[in-house]
Write a protein that binds this DNA or RNA. Structure first.
Lengths: 132, 132
DNA sequence: GATAGTGTACTAGTTTTCTAGTACAGTCAA
DNA sequence: TTGACTGTACTAGAAAACTAGTACACTATC
């Protein structure tokens, strides 16, 4: 190596015993990485090949995860260059974004509600997270 | 009929075009019914057979949905009698419930975060819902 | 006990999901 | 241009998910 442009520090890990599909584990780890700031806009993700070798899986499995994340607008892939965390999530129409947030929240409330939790429970838990 | 014990008013509907598995649509509708109070503790759900006939699906598909809901503690099934919304969700260990809420919130935050929303966005949206 | 209602169990077929093998194509630096 | 890196495309097989057919067992009422 010569210039070592922005070394990739992010690393995947697998839990084969969990029963959760590999590609889904990868997606979740990237998402969490972004939320918890271990991945920042512009950061390069491990390459498809490197990840495949490291985890002893097929490149296509990595591709599948990256593709789904790209559809979500979370990352950007550039053939021949690499895969990167989106520098700025594409700004969408406000109405569309509002609808999207609404849908996520709806589903969430329904799920928590079915488990016997009230909106108050959720709110207080989120407040805690926010202050951390 | 003679006594007509608590007529079942809840009705399922299907969206075959959605691509969402039938049994999962049923689960979601029961969950939402509970959250939005169209289903209350003790209410009887449509019978396995009636639902199967109404929606032109196999009884086992309904059974699958009901079983999953029962595992979640949302409903209770009684062979020969019917299926009912749990009169009182089984009280669990506080620590266990805390963990459960934590997990739901975690997943939610990760998902919303990946879609570009901040905890603040979620909080304000939830506050709105609460006041409605 | 008979009967009509309820949920249950077992089996199986189709579809979808998930992963892999392998060859191809773009990018960049030397 | 060449070579070593990057992501992409096509194909296919195994596993899981999903739904259905059919027969059985429990419950309540008459």
């Amino acid at each position: 190596m010569s210039t070592a442009p922005q070394p990739v520090s992010f690393r995947f890990r697998l839990d084969l015993a969990s029963g959760v599909p590999v590609y889904r584990q990868l997606i979740e780890q990237v998402r969490n990485g972004i939320v918890f700031r271990s991945l920042r806009p512009g950061d390069q993700l491990p390459t498809v090949r490197q990840t495949a070798v490291d985890l002893a899986i097929n490149p296509n499995t990595v591709v599948r995860a990256y593709r789904e994340l790209e559809i979500l607008g979370v990352i950007e892939t550039h053939q021949g260059t690499g895969t990167f965390v989106s520098s700025q999530k594409v700004e969408r129409d406000d109405v569309e974004r509002q609808r999207q947030l609404d849908q996520i929240v709806s589903e969430f409330v329904a799920r928590a509600g079915a488990a016997g939790f009230q909106i108050e429970d959720i709110l207080s838990r989120l407040q805690e997270r926010k202050s951390n």
